[in-house]
Computed example of a mutant assay.
Amino acid sequence: MICFLLTIQSLWTFVAASRQSHSAPDLNLVEKEHVSSLPRLDSSSSDDILRRIDAGSPFIIRSIANEWPATQKWNHNYFKRIFSSNDDLLVSSTFSTTPPPSTFSANETKKRETYYGIFLNDPILANLVAADYDLPSFIPGDWWLRGNEWLHWGWSPSGAQRHVDLMCSSRMSVQVRGQKRWKFYPLVNTSSTQYKDILKRWEGIVNSGDAVLWFPGWEHETKILGKDESVSLSLHFWPTGGTRYETHFASELAKRIPMKCQWKRG
């Protein structure tokens, strides 16, 4: 049973270093010329959501978590209470590179400088929070990749450094509490007008209750805003048969992502 509770800034430093050779400098000028606000959809717009997933550019969905029990429960003190009791899972398997201190016992100043993360790959940990949220129905049930959930929390101005997720799946980050600014940078190039949104740099603020979705190959960074604590839940999904974006850019994505991904439409 493995659980990683860590300062995400250190993790992203490692990830960024590991992928420097996969950067796309030819897109630097494109990024400067195409900065757009992340589109915002209603959770009831299922067809529009699926079309955007198929197209492969990031976007925001409004108000999917407003009724979750998590909005009233999840914060640093709650996580400290429910996770610290599992010493056999947490204490012995804590991964931290800088600077220690121990998992939940940092003083107030150090606590507020830290961007926390916990990987819910262990069923015991996942079950501690499973009743506090619902999987959104606009994503088909067989697309979800359970056992890959992450919790992230912290205070302004912490966040995640610019990085790319070295995995095949798509992601949804649900902002349970607080606010976070997201920035997305393209990693693939195209001359096709059909995929013009892939060349844009997207930015947007994700408010409490909202979710942001992004797809393989997109670099991104986050920054917590405001005085309130930020708490978010990251979920993974993989569209059955692949998407237009994944299949069209499969060879390009394979250069950026070291895992062997099977992106093929049925």
Rank of each mutant, 00 (worst) to 15 (best):
D122C: 14
L125A: 12
D88V: 02
E67M: 07
D48L: 05
S84T: 11
V129W: 02
G117Y: 00
I53E: 02
S45N: 10
P101F: 08
Y115Q: 01
K73Y: 09
E67P: 02
S85Q: 15
D88H: 12
R81C: 05
S45R: 07
P136Q: 05
S46V: 15
S37D: 15
P39T: 00
T98W: 15
E67F: 10
R40S: 02
D54N: 14
N121S: 10
H152N: 13
R40D: 11
H76G: 04
L135T: 02
L90V: 12
K73P: 00
L145R: 10
N75R: 04
S37V: 11
F79L: 15
H163V: 01
K111Q: 05
F138A: 01
N127T: 04
S84Y: 08
R52Q: 11
A70I: 13
L120P: 02
D88K: 03
D87P: 00
L89H: 06
L50C: 09
V91P: 00
K80V: 06
W155Y: 12
V164G: 11
W74H: 03
I64A: 00
S36C: 06
F95R: 03
A131E: 06
S43E: 05
S156E: 15
S44N: 06
P58I: 04
P157Y: 12
H163E: 07
S36Y: 07
D122W: 06
V164H: 03
P100R: 13
R162C: 11
A106I: 08
I61G: 00
R51D: 15
L38S: 15
S46W: 08
W144A: 05
F104V: 05
H76V: 08
S63Y: 03
Y116T: 10
K73V: 04
P99I: 14
S102P: 09
K32R: 14
S44R: 10
W74G: 10
L50I: 11
L120G: 07
R51Y: 13
A65L: 04
S63N: 11
D87L: 13
P140K: 14
S37G: 01
Q72Y: 10
K111Y: 09
D47Y: 01
I61S: 00
L145S: 09
R81A: 14
F138S: 04
F59Q: 01
S36L: 08
E31W: 04
V91Q: 11
D87F: 14
I139A: 03
H34L: 12
L145T: 05
R62Y: 03
D54Q: 06
I124P: 01
I53A: 10
P157R: 06
D132A: 02
T94S: 02
E33Y: 12
P157G: 10
I139N: 09
F104L: 00
Y78I: 08
S43C: 10
K80S: 06
S36M: 11
V30N: 09
T114P: 06
I60S: 04
R162H: 12
K73C: 08
R162V: 14
D134S: 15
N148V: 07
S92Y: 09
P39A: 00
S46E: 00
